[in-house]
Amino acid sequence: MKVHQQEILNRLAFIDRTIIHAAKACHHDENVPMELRNCVFRLRQRSRQAQQALRARDESRVRQSIDDLTRISDEAQHRLHPSDGMTYALKSAVILTHIELSALQYRLA
């Protein structure tokens, strides 16, 4: 990997925290559509898998996990709408997750 493993681990830890914020916001906001809840749930699962792959030093699984996370975060971001009544906390967590994943994916390219 061109990017140092510790940098990836740090970035994934930060991304995981943003996903946790999104999950908590989903839990506390009854206006969240089920499709977005599912995206956040999938992000949480895939984030764990990415961290496991990194600890196992499995480069192909790390890259695949980050690609999957980026795709799911893109899907989640497209489910946000200005007038949907969801909280700022949820929207900002989803957007920040997507930005961070896109940046990490770019660094790994």
Score class of each variant (00 low, 15 high):
M1D: 09
K2P: 08
K2G: 09
V3Q: 01
V3H: 01
E7F: 05
E7L: 05
E7W: 01
I8N: 04
R11S: 12
R11C: 07
L12V: 11
L12Y: 04
A13S: 11
R17Q: 15
I19D: 10
A22D: 11
A23N: 11
A23H: 11
K24I: 14
K24T: 15
A25L: 15
C26H: 14
C26G: 12
H28V: 14
E30R: 14
N31P: 01
V32W: 00
V32G: 14
P33G: 14
M34Y: 13
E35A: 12
E35D: 13
L36Q: 10
C39R: 00
V40A: 09
F41G: 07
F41Y: 09
R42G: 05
R46M: 09
R46E: 10
R48Q: 06
Q49L: 07
Q49M: 07
A50S: 07
Q51G: 02
Q52Y: 05
Q52L: 04
L54S: 05
A56R: 03
D58G: 07
E59N: 02
S60V: 11
S60T: 10
R61M: 12
V62L: 02
V62G: 05
I66S: 01
D67F: 03
D68L: 01
L69F: 04
L69R: 00
T70Y: 05
R71M: 09
I72E: 07
S73G: 02
D74L: 06
E75S: 03
Q77V: 06
Q77H: 08
H78R: 15
R79F: 15
H81D: 13
H81Y: 13
H81V: 13
S83F: 15
S83P: 01
D84A: 15
G85S: 14
M86Q: 15
M86G: 15
M86Y: 15
A89F: 13
A89L: 13
A89V: 13
K91P: 00
K91Y: 03
S92Y: 11
S92F: 09
A93M: 11
A93W: 11
I95N: 00
H98G: 08
E100F: 05
L101M: 05
A103M: 03
L104I: 02
L104E: 00
L104S: 01
Y106P: 00
Y106V: 03
Y106C: 02
A109D: 05
A109M: 03
A109R: 03
